[in-house]
Design a protein around this nucleic acid. Structure first.
Lengths: 188, 188
DNA sequence: ATCTCGAACTTTAGCTTTGAAGTCTTCGGT
DNA sequence: ACCGAAGACTTCAAAGCTAAAGTTCGAGAT
């Protein structure tokens, strides 16, 4: 097994390199277009590595990646940084039940407050606290440094082109998927 | 509960569009480079949507996305499609405990077999069954159709360029992360 | 006014994963 | 040979999620 270059040097444990993996796919599945597979596999791996990086950064701040997602959603909603649990759940791709629990924890940690809407007493309002906003800001600063570093070697043209192509692919996927209520993890 | 009410229209529920999101980020965080954010957000979203698509396909086959990952790892290891639990766990980015449970289920479903290594009685060998290989093949066929469709609108040059740029980014991330034994979900 | 349907959130039960402790086998030092 | 340490897997307890049932409140129909 362990054959050649940097088999395990960096990267994850016994994981084959991208090149090894594509070669293996070609052996096992002739119909495969190596160019397509290269793009798809690189996309997937890149995303995983980035999530690990984000996870480390947020962990250093004493919050989880899951909590950072909530903070992001609240900040993105704009001042006064309030959203209902069901709205949050939709944005994050969670079930309402999971949202309830996550908010429980974040209230206990002082990142958000939860109160009933007086005009609409069925509703609940989750609001960012100053501490929560500060955590978001710190995470954001670390993230932008990381992201800038990641794209450092790309020329201006390459960045423009990459953004445009990815957006085009995204549109295609979203258009092709009317979404039958699928639940999935969010993390923009 | 019916499957219709405005719960979810196109894309995810109350999720803002990519453009809205970037505009919101710029309002809340001046230091943000919109071009970088566009790339990063598109990458993240694209990956999510693709995982949903894979999840639907594998669900149609009666297996979970998690199980498909195990099948992929075994096939990629080459004939005779055998790996130990700890090796599998490393490739999938799972803890050994999770691997044990996942193998339990897959053995029960007839996708793999588990037996002790006679020459090394501490070790266990997980081997793909013909049924497991057939499931992998079916999933693979569906995946390649989807992937080909996704990249349909890209020219040959764009595909080459995209693959090259993504590979470059991946190398950068892997080089920058000596990997402190991080656990994360795999899904190439 | 009251009733009933429906919406928003919470609670409950079950599943998957993690982290830590436990079991069994192999290997190396004495 | 014997004993201890290390490795490979499993077991156990707890965290976090989903699906489904339960609760509470509001709006329109009777």
């Amino acid at each position: 097994m362990g054959d050649t270059p940097g088999t395990i040097g960096t990267g994850l444990g016994g994981e084959p390199t991208l090149e090894e993996q594509i070669a293996a796919y070609q052996r096992e599945f002739q119909d495969l277009d190596p160019q397509v597979e290269k793009i798809v596999s690189a996309l997937s791996r890149l995303n995983r590595r980035m999530n690990v990086a984000y996870g480390r950064q947020t962990a250093d701040l004493g919050i989880s990646n899951a909590e950072w997602e909530v903070l992001k959603a609240l900040v993105l909603s704009g001042a006064p940084y309030r959203l209902g649990p069901s709205d949050l759940a939709k944005r994050l791709g969670l079930t309402p039940a999971a949202m309830t629990h996550r908010i429980d924890r974040m209230v206990a940690e002082g990142l958000v407050t939860r109160e009933r809407d007086e005009s609409n007493r069925v509703r609940v309002i989750v609001e960012l606290t100053p501490e929560g906003r500060e955590k978001w800001l710190q995470a954001m600063r670390m993230a932008t440094v990381f992201e800038g570093d990641l794209l450092q070697d790309l020329t201006a043209d390459e960045r423009t082109s990459l953004g445009e192509v990815l957006t085009r692919l995204l549109r295609r996927v979203e258009h092709a998927q009317p979404d039958a209520g699928g639940r999935l993890s969010d993390l923009d």
